[in-house]
Write a protein that binds this DNA or RNA. Sequence first.
DNA 1: CTGTTAGCGCGTTCAT
DNA 2: ATGAACGCGCTAACAG
Lengths: 333, 333
Amino acid sequence: MEKESVTIYDVAREAGVSMATVSRVVNGNSNVKQVTKDKVQAVIERLDYHPNAVARGLASKKTTTVGVIIPDVTDAYFSELARGIDDVANMYHYNIILANSDESGSKELKVLENLLAKQVDGVIYMGNGLNAELRKAFRHANAPVVIAGSVDDEEKHPAVNIDYVAATCDAVNKLIRTGHDKVAFVSGDLKQPINYKYRLKGYQKALAEANITFDDSLIFTSEYFYAAGYELAKKIQASAATAAIISDDELAAGLLNGLTDAGVNVPNDFELITANNTKLTQITRPELTSITQPMYDMGAVSMRMLTKLMNKEQLDQTTVVLPYGIIARSSTK
Amino acid sequence: MEKESVTIYDVAREAGVSMATVSRVVNGNSNVKQVTKDKVQAVIERLDYHPNAVARGLASKKTTTVGVIIPDVTDAYFSELARGIDDVANMYHYNIILANSDESGSKELKVLENLLAKQVDGVIYMGNGLNAELRKAFRHANAPVVIAGSVDDEEKHPAVNIDYVAATCDAVNKLIRTGHDKVAFVSGDLKQPINYKYRLKGYQKALAEANITFDDSLIFTSEYFYAAGYELAKKIQASAATAAIISDDELAAGLLNGLTDAGVNVPNDFELITANNTKLTQITRPELTSITQPMYDMGAVSMRMLTKLMNKEQLDQTTVVLPYGIIARSSTK
DNA sequence: CTGTTAGCGCGTTCAT
DNA sequence: ATGAACGCGCTAACAG
């Protein structure tokens, strides 16, 4: 520690050139004679020179770091997205500042402000709480923002996601086809657009197509925790439902185990389909049938979009909808 | 986007003071008359001025960001640590740059170099691959480094962890007491100190105390993936083992399900104890008995230590060993 | 192809 | 209590 760091000026002096030339070779500018380039390169290595990214950032107004807002790193769904983001970021020589938001509106705002103060070149937002205030903050930010793994119900911001309406509809259809006409809908807060404007809509669409009347005693909301799902089992059991579509895997795992422990046989007495196909779905017994989302790719694509935006390139499409699927496992017949 | 950002200079002009004064009020310097402080504050709000952290970093040589090296965000164990780190970082007004290393030595080095170039004020290293090269890089870094959730077998670097020897020994003891004398040891790469210098040592200690001779046909290594564990079930079944201690929960979950699917009844025919008590342990059926580690706290404490180091404060102790426990669930009798 | 000169936005002496 | 001036390390015109 504490050794004086060598600057571009030191290598310029040692190499007998100007700092501009050093800057050029460091940045791969072609306008440098091979000989001097080699000479400078040698000095750089001898002195073990490393460009100071902060100074560079101040001068160039680019930090090559992007901010990533995530509800909770600990969440299997979002961390998978984060992995895709980081890998692509790396490819393009960006670093990511990761900030947990807990899906709290005020914290999201605070965190965004922070990221912007650090002069990030762009930000990726993950979370389902996109509201008017946040939207305004995004608009006023002088850095592009892309939404990953969720929706912008006003479709103003670049986003990458799947067709949540269709996916939910398909899943519910699958349940209906097996003979269920009392399918529970289990999601997070219904105030969030992704739940009431997309998932619930898909659910209702499936019912409508099968001429089943909507019954709101079959609608359940919960936090996305294992324990919450386990707890919910009682309520679901007390309802008329014989199957359920759940919008979160951890929640689904809790529900599954809660039902099982209460003596309900899944899938014979009750069928379940969950939404994210995270690692958890294979670990439970029975394994969980699930909607599949390309989480890693969604993260990767959103970061790729962001690089274009940061580069002032035109986007082919502002919303990228990736394909989803349904993988049948043992929680359905 | 693209609105000219307001600088400290703008505020100074509008408020009719010098930028030095603005800087003082922004940084809470006491030497400012209340009246002018208020005046400046008003202008700051009116102009919506936000200090540029990059310029600040260049001038002060502090970026208030720390680098966090993590094997994989997607890993339940490490992401829990990361959460603790981020929460404490936030308390002290730091941000974290998260970098995935995949436990690859070369990538860890590259990533560290990167972080250092960005002038992070400190770094937290998570991973089990602390080798000579990395150690050297840490020493030469002009930022303090603390190791979280793993060991520095030379005990030179500040680190926070648990007593892996004792924890493993306890777990194996528990198995032995139930009557097992053929306990399998399942871990990751035995080249990693945490596995051969700590966990394996604890395993051997337990055997020795019970006068059971060590049998290396009971030693298994694997990658930390569910599928790898599932695959491993066959080999374990073919061995003489009747119980196992496993060093990773995802691996343990795979092993458990592999055994179960092969017709082995856990815990009646085979008992399992896993190591990290992540969320997974409650999701499997039967639930997994596990060593418990305070992951979140380990992250939090390591970040707290780092803030002291960055502040040039003395550390009370360079290695913090947090308490562990063993929680009995249904994979043991 | 290379060097000179300005800043980038802010913290920090050093005067006053 | 406040201001002037310098410098942090680098990029980016602009000359030549």
